Simulated scan of single mutants.
Amino acid sequence: MRFLHCSDVHMTADYPSLPMRPLGWRRWLAMFEQTVGGRRKAYARAPATLATIAQDARRWGVDHFILSGDVTQYALEPEFVLARQALGELAEDPGRCTIIPGNHDVFTPGSHRSGRFARHFGQLLHSDLPEHQREGAFPFVRLVGRDAAVVGLLSARVPVVPGIASGFIGAEQLEGLAAVVADPRLEGRALLVVVHHAPFTPGGGADHPLHRLRDAKALIRLLRGPRFAVLHGHIHHRYHLPATAERPHVFCAGSSTQAGREGYWIIEVKEGLVVGGRQHVPGGPHTPAAAEAHA
């Protein structure tokens, strides 16, 4: 079985053309990142790149498409619309597609209160095992074929101020995930657990305090060995940490639409185990864009 994993696609509205007052102070502060930080230029072609990645999912004949958060730049309505348009019919079918929110998709209290992410992607929060849901829709479980299941977790929280980008899953969702892992109906299936924040950096350590997944250790304790994989984004570098007896596979999709760093993972599952993955560039030939990364 094949899974396409991308992340941090950051659809970006035309901020200079928008009235400043409705944007709010959080986005005003973030405009420095857009201009001086170069984000506006880096994601100018993000909608076209995401559309190409969606087309690649069909070309590769993948069994399931996964986007692990940060669909938008700063959670504006036009940015969610751009993402839906780029993904097309793929975003209509929970049997083929999983998308979870990232911290940029709940960038303001207003975007969170209004349920902006769910308004555009709530159809993908359906669970095949709803009895395990604990915090709203999460964790949700998607059964894929006979050999795999995708589990969606929520780690994205509204930041107190821009620049604080840490997240947490929370005790309720972790208890639900433990129930998923122990569910006999999932015996013999690989579990691909999708969360936005990174449990490990490329070197295998913890992320810095303002950016990290705060309950990463509790997550990893539940998922050990090659039956499990954690798929995440948040760190804009693509890497793979192979499974050991003490941890699952960890795949970071980086920022799949960032200019000069475009790409995604094709992850392979066989007989209930995650057997590896290869990086690919959007629209590229059906050969690996690079050897499997381990750091």
Rank of each mutant, 00 (worst) to 15 (best):
R2L: 12
R2N: 11
C6Q: 02
D8I: 03
V9N: 08
V9H: 07
T12Y: 01
M20C: 11
R26Y: 13
R26L: 13
T35I: 13
V36I: 11
R39Q: 09
R39Y: 12
R40E: 13
A42P: 03
R45V: 05
P47K: 01
Q55A: 13
Q55P: 05
D56K: 02
G61N: 09
V62N: 11
V62I: 15
H64T: 11
I66E: 04
S68L: 00
V71I: 15
Y74S: 07
Y74F: 15
L76E: 05
P78Q: 10
P78W: 14
Q85R: 15
A86M: 12
E92F: 05
D93T: 12
D105Q: 08
V106T: 03
S111R: 02
H112D: 14
S114W: 15
S114L: 15
F117K: 06
A118N: 03
A118M: 05
R119Y: 12
H120V: 09
G122H: 12
G122I: 09
Q123A: 15
Q123M: 11
L124V: 09
L125R: 11
L125P: 03
E135F: 12
E135S: 10
F140E: 02
V144S: 01
A148Y: 02
A149W: 03
L153G: 01
V158P: 06
V160S: 04
P162M: 09
P162Q: 12
I164K: 14
E172M: 11
Q173T: 02
G176I: 04
A178E: 01
A179Q: 02
A179Y: 00
V181I: 08
A182M: 08
D183W: 07
R185E: 06
E187W: 07
G188F: 14
L191H: 06
G203H: 13
A206I: 05
R212W: 00
D215R: 00
D215G: 07
A216D: 00
A218V: 00
L219S: 02
L219Q: 01
L223H: 01
R224H: 10
G225A: 07
P226G: 13
P226S: 15
H234M: 06
I235F: 09
I235K: 00
H236E: 01
H237M: 06
H240K: 10
A243D: 05
G254Q: 07
S256R: 03
T257W: 05
G263D: 01
Y264D: 03
W265P: 01
I266Y: 03
I266N: 07
E271H: 11
E271V: 04
G277C: 07
R278I: 07
P282N: 08
T287Y: 07
P288C: 00
A290D: 09
